[in-house]
């Protein structure tokens, strides 16, 4: 059995359904992401009856009870879907979500088992869900990652600097790419390495004659980044490599102005 494809697809599908719970109260979900048939691979066909059930739960979960007029009998597919939605009556969105998930679990037993295995805490994993089951508070953490509002375009050089991938970085530099190549926001690989705190990459880039005082589009140098991110070891190294401590960014701020604590690199 081709297990990797048959487990990944339901994951993606369920990742979508899971967003129901967050989106229901705050967002207006757009018309059907439900389309399960698109997600099914050929050796895991789901009966049309099950598909219709899933459709009904999806509609309840996203839109509540069916209030639209019954489609014409000539439009068989629309009619069947409408029936599947309408017959669930006033079922709650919450329940519909759970029914949806339950049904997907029934259709994909492997999915459930897979998710249990993924729990890190070996000791507690068999029982931790039961512990949450009864009552009490909930630990919640942020859903969305911090992201840029604008379309930032990075080159492979910046990506390997960001990820701390020293071998890849060397390889790109060997192809003759400029060490001071800028991304769409004017940042060099050195900016990215400093931002993520990869001191070994910072050392490598400077040994390849990267501009230690390169400015991004906001006029900030790598030392501004080190100061902002409170990366003392990186800042100290940059200063020793002749980074300018007094250079002002477009807001008129020097690296020292951005640093909250009085760090040792300021006194070097």
């Amino acid at each position: 059995m081709n297990s990797s494809s048959s487990t990944v697809k339901p994951f993606q599908l369920l990742a979508t359904t899971r967003k129901f719970s967050h989106c229901l109260q705050t967002l207006d979900i757009q018309e059907p992401l439900w389309l399960l048939e698109l997600e099914m691979d050929s050796n895991q066909r789901v009966s049309s009856e099950n598909q219709l059930q899933l459709y009904g739960f999806y509609k309840i979960a996203t839109q509540g009870p069916c209030t639209t007029p019954q489609p014409s009998a000539l439009n068989m597919s629309a009619r069947a879907k409408w029936n599947a939605w309408q017959r669930l009556g006033s079922m709650s969105a919450e329940e519909a979500m759970q029914m949806y998930i339950k049904l997907v679990c029934d259709l994909y037993p492997s999915w459930t088992a897979g998710s249990a295995v993924s729990r890190k805490d070996g000791d507690g994993h068999a029982t931790s869900s039961a512990s949450k089951g009864m009552m009490g508070p909930v630990f919640s953490s942020l859903v969305y990652e911090e992201d840029s509002n604008t379309q930032v375009k990075l080159e492979a050089l910046h990506e390997s600097a960001r990820e701390g991938e020293i071998d890849k970085l060397n390889k790109y530099l060997d192809t003759g790419v400029s060490v001071n190549l800028k991304d769409s926001e004017g940042r060099t690989a050195l900016h990215w390495a400093v931002d993520r705190g990869h001191i070994n990459i910072v050392e490598l880039l400077l040994s390849k004659n990267a501009d230690v005082n390169a400015k991004d589009d906001e006029g900030q140098t790598p030392l501004h980044y080190a100061a902002m991110c409170d990366r003392e070891d990186v800042a100290e190294f940059l200063v020793k490599q002749n980074a300018d401590r007094d250079v002002k960014d477009n807001d008129g701020k020097s690296p020292c102005d951005l640093c909250e604590s009085n760090s040792s690199w300021m006194q070097l």
Partner: peptide
Amino acid sequence: ETEISIGNISRKVQDSLS
């Protein structure tokens, strides 16, 4: 983000199964 979502879904599933 996908993995986070999977974690959440997994909880939902555990919940619905129990």
